[in-house]
Simulated assay, not measured.
Amino acid sequence: MSELHTPRQKISALIITYNEMGYIEKCIDSVSFADEIIVVDSFSTDGTYEYLQKRDKVNVIQNPFENFTAQKSFALRQASNDWILFLDADEVVNTKLQEEIVETVNNPKACEAYWFYRKFMFQNTKLNFSGWQTDKNHRLFRKSKARFTDKKIVHETLEVDGNSCILKEKLTHFCYKNYEDYKGKMLHYGRLKAKEAFYKEKHFNYLFMIVKPFWKFFNHYILRLGFLDGKKGIIICYLNALGVLERYRELKRLEKKNQLTYYLVMP
């Protein structure tokens, strides 16, 4: 058996899911080298949970979704190994990256956490620009040296007690399956960002609702060269801007709901 399949340091691969059929199959295949695979599912309705139950080596647990940080923190508590490889369901670890991960965790001089740069895929075509050129995320880390901060409920942030390094190989991110799927994700993220802002007592602003989405599109499509991605760039940049617009729409709704509740409970 090759060293790739028998790492000296054991790795727990963690994934959270909700309605991820079409993505999760490739993701699970790409982390089969890990010593355990734990998937926390938010009660999917598209067959994701049933599919995962049939996969060898996969321990799937259903847990109600509160927000991304809470769900990932719950998944982290289920892991039995110190080294954690935490992926989104639409991410894939290629063979070279698998080898780099195994080599890294077995290096006595390893850092406590590692950033991954990502290669974005629009369906099966690479997305070269549109604001994603410098995107990177913590995906590999020691459980004993890191935790997800509760200051953010979307685009969760890992707090690391120690050094963070960067792996050479890129993680493949299949960000775009189809228009409705990506639109749904952007609207969902926008609403969660609104809740995050509301909890921090940030207030709705009409000017921001107009300017921020426009800036998002202009920044990603013009300044970050989204136009070089052709039609793909227009679609991605528009839907990213739509997510920002939804954030302010939802923040407005939350403030109105809060005001109504306040007046109803007033003596």
Rank of each mutant, 00 (worst) to 15 (best):
204 F>W: 10
204 F>Q: 04
204 F>H: 10
204 F>T: 06
204 F>N: 03
204 F>D: 07
204 F>Y: 15
205 N>L: 03
205 N>E: 06
205 N>Y: 03
205 N>C: 11
205 N>D: 12
206 Y>F: 15
206 Y>K: 13
206 Y>N: 14
207 L>I: 15
207 L>G: 14
208 F>W: 08
208 F>M: 14
209 M>P: 00
209 M>G: 00
210 I>Y: 05
210 I>A: 15
210 I>C: 14
211 V>N: 05
211 V>Q: 06
211 V>I: 14
211 V>L: 09
212 K>F: 09
212 K>W: 12
212 K>G: 08
212 K>P: 06
213 P>R: 09
213 P>N: 08
213 P>M: 10
214 F>N: 07
214 F>Q: 02
214 F>V: 14
214 F>W: 06
214 F>M: 14
214 F>S: 06
214 F>P: 02
215 W>K: 15
215 W>S: 13
215 W>T: 08
216 K>Y: 14
216 K>H: 14
216 K>A: 15
216 K>T: 15
216 K>E: 15
216 K>G: 13
217 F>Q: 02
217 F>A: 03
217 F>S: 04
217 F>K: 00
218 F>H: 03
218 F>I: 09
218 F>V: 13
218 F>E: 08
218 F>R: 02
218 F>W: 05
218 F>T: 12
218 F>D: 07
219 N>H: 09
219 N>Y: 11
219 N>R: 07
219 N>F: 04
219 N>G: 04
220 H>E: 14
221 Y>W: 10
222 I>E: 00
222 I>M: 10
222 I>D: 06
222 I>V: 09
222 I>W: 12
223 L>M: 12
223 L>S: 07
223 L>G: 06
223 L>P: 04
224 R>A: 10
224 R>Q: 10
224 R>F: 01
224 R>W: 01
224 R>V: 03
225 L>I: 09
226 G>T: 07
226 G>V: 10
226 G>C: 10
228 L>H: 09
228 L>E: 09
228 L>P: 08
229 D>G: 06
229 D>L: 04
229 D>A: 01
229 D>P: 01
230 G>L: 03
230 G>F: 13
230 G>P: 05
231 K>E: 13
231 K>G: 00
232 K>T: 07
232 K>S: 11
233 G>L: 06
233 G>S: 07
234 I>P: 05
234 I>L: 12
234 I>R: 08
234 I>D: 00
234 I>H: 06
234 I>M: 11
234 I>Y: 08
235 I>K: 15
235 I>W: 07
235 I>R: 12
235 I>Y: 03
235 I>H: 11
235 I>D: 11
236 I>G: 01
236 I>K: 04
236 I>S: 03
237 C>P: 08
237 C>N: 08
237 C>Q: 06
238 Y>S: 15
238 Y>K: 13
239 L>N: 01
239 L>S: 03
239 L>M: 05
239 L>F: 02
239 L>W: 02
240 N>M: 10
240 N>Q: 14
240 N>L: 11
240 N>F: 11
241 A>Q: 06
241 A>K: 03
241 A>S: 15
241 A>L: 08
241 A>N: 00
241 A>R: 11
242 L>S: 04
242 L>I: 10
